[in-house]
Amino acid sequence: MEYLLSTNGLTKQYGRHKAVNSVNIHIRQGDIYGLIGRNGAGKTTLLKMISGLATPTEGDFTLFGKKEKDAYRCLSRVGTLIESPGVYPNMTAADNLKIKCLAMGVRRKNEIEELLEIVGLSSTGKKKVKNFSMGMKQRLGIALALVGNPDLVILDEPINGLDPQGIAEVRDTLFRLNRERNITFIISSHILEELSKIATHYGIIHDGVLLQELTREELLARCSERIELKTDDTRKSCTVLDEMGIRKYKVIDADTIHIFERLNDSGEITMKLAEKGIRTMGITVKNEALEDYYLNLTGGADNV
């Protein structure tokens, strides 16, 4: 079994509008898969189909090596938090967890206490959920998704409504669960910076279409620091760079070269180019933010 979850042309159509259009995602055991997309990009619809809450118009998915109806039977091994946490407001956190435990047939002792401990809600006691803060409800939603020790947990915008400390706590919790229990996570968000701190793989979705799948390393490489050299002769400039022992560079267009090493040597590079009679039009150290990378990929800030 290569992938824990893979989708095959998964499509969801509402009337004439395709909310999710032929999406193929690939997730391995142990991945933390970040699904990035702006609001309305199709993240929730895609996750609902994978969670068994919505029926695909076209396509299917393979889960734990099982396809079609067999895959749906494996959904008992999948925990979900889709959109806002679904909780009974007049009950305590423990009661809400107890209900899920009963439904899933979980009889393990201390399951509820452990889950409350994991998400940092063990001190809530008899406090009713209606009196919880947004962040506490969100953490209870995560605890509900973890009932029954699932192999795959799908979290839709889990950091929504959380303050910076809450975001950090949730991030640490998910990271720990991934390491200690080898739980695979799919986490959707429209905040790429936050997702970048935890995800090992990324899927970028826009207007229902999966634009790109890439690993953390690939994403970082594309967003890494570099010297951007503007010159009137890129061919001669490359020769100079070679003579200087610089190997990690890339010619972008007729007058632009990106250099990925010796980032502090821009002065020396300018001098060597001048010695060979090559005019330097501009030289700057640049670092494309993850957000900028995403915006460029999805068609610019106008789309956000």
Binding site: G52, G86, V87, P89, A103
Partner: peptide
């Protein structure tokens, strides 16, 4: 209506055959 109204149904519906 309770489970539908507060969304609790989402926690269990997908995991049922």
């Amino acid at each position: 209506n309770a489970a539908q109204k507060n969304g609790y149904i989402k926690n269990v519906a997908g995991q049922l055959p």
